[in-house]
Nucleic acid binder design. Structure first.
Length: 253
DNA sequence: ATCATTGTTATAGC
DNA sequence: CGCTATAACAATGA
């Protein structure tokens, strides 16, 4: 699940802020989930792909990883994740005004933490109003030897960007994922930052109108044939992170 | 049946 | 301390 979806979830869950958890269930081995029982939620926020529930004296960080999803019912409205529901219910909260079910996700408890939000740097969260393109541009240049494919997924620079977004952004800019930062001119580098940010928001908008799951907007991600030149698309693992990259060796240089 | 995947973290080893 | 490699997690669909 990529950052824009987590941002959406955060928005959907706002009616639970200030509400008490009436019942807790789920099979997470990481946490004794009964600590949440009868606790009141003080804040719900997202940072990149993190979803955070702040309580009075501790905080819970949820990460949906690759396979995680969720379902919720908030004041009569139903919401769900991008992918089909899995049988593994990690954690479920019941409130007077609805419930929140998280599946196949990784939980991390921050004990003795009254304000986890203050420890996050929101200038790198692409979905934050505080996102700073100029700062990202500078951070990228600090890693001249790194491959651009790794950098566009670097959560310390582009928190929230996932594999779909970075593949599309590279294609849009006609840049091969294996190009090193030092071999990309500054104008293009700046544009990559801009597009990584902008496409994250576009992703959010597409999701809102149900145009995400069918992949109708992807030009390169999981495609077989290049939408521009008609050539065969290459699928290979790139960079230190060895994530799946899709690219056209004719259109991207 | 095996393998890859919208992703990160813990651990070991150097 | 920092880097890298590897496993671990977890379910589904190709």
């Amino acid at each position: 699940m990529e950052g824009p979806t987590v941002y959406t979830i955060k928005q959907e869950l706002q009616p639970f802020v200030g509400k008490k958890i009436n019942n807790v269930s789920g099979y997470s081995k990481a946490i004794d989930n009964q600590i949440f029982l009868n606790q009141r939620i003080k804040d719900i926020f997202s940072w990149g792909k993190h979803l955070v529930f702040q309580f009075d004296d501790f905080a819970l960080r949820v990460h949906f990883m690759l396979l995680g999803t969720y379902e919720s019912e908030v004041e009569g409205k139903k919401f769900s994740g991008d992918y089909p529901k899995t049988p593994y219910l990690t954690l479920k909260f019941d409130f007077d005004n609805g419930h929140m079910d998280m599946y196949s996700s990784a939980l991390k408890l921050h004990p003795d933490t009254k304000d986890l939000k203050s420890t996050y740097d929101f200038t790198v969260d692409v979905m934050s109003e505080q996102y700073d393109e100029e700062a990202a541009f500078k951070l990228m240049q600090k890693k001249p030897e790194a491959e651009i494919s790794d950098i566009l997924l670097d959560q310390k620079i582009f928190s929230g960007v996932g594999n779909k977004i970075r593949n599309e952004v590279l294609f849009m800019n006609k840049i091969l994922p294996t190009r090193k930062i030092k071999d990309i001119d500054l104008k293009t580098l700046r544009q990559l930052v801009k597009d990584n940010h902008a496409l994250s928001w576009q992703f959010y908008e597409w999701r809102k109108v149900g145009e995400l799951n069918n992949g109708q907007h992807w030009k390169i991600y999981r495609k077989k044939v290049c939408s521009v030149c008609g050539g065969k698309i290459t699928h290979a693992y790139t960079g230190k992170t060895k994530r799946s990259s899709y690219f056209c060796t004719t259109c991207q240089k």
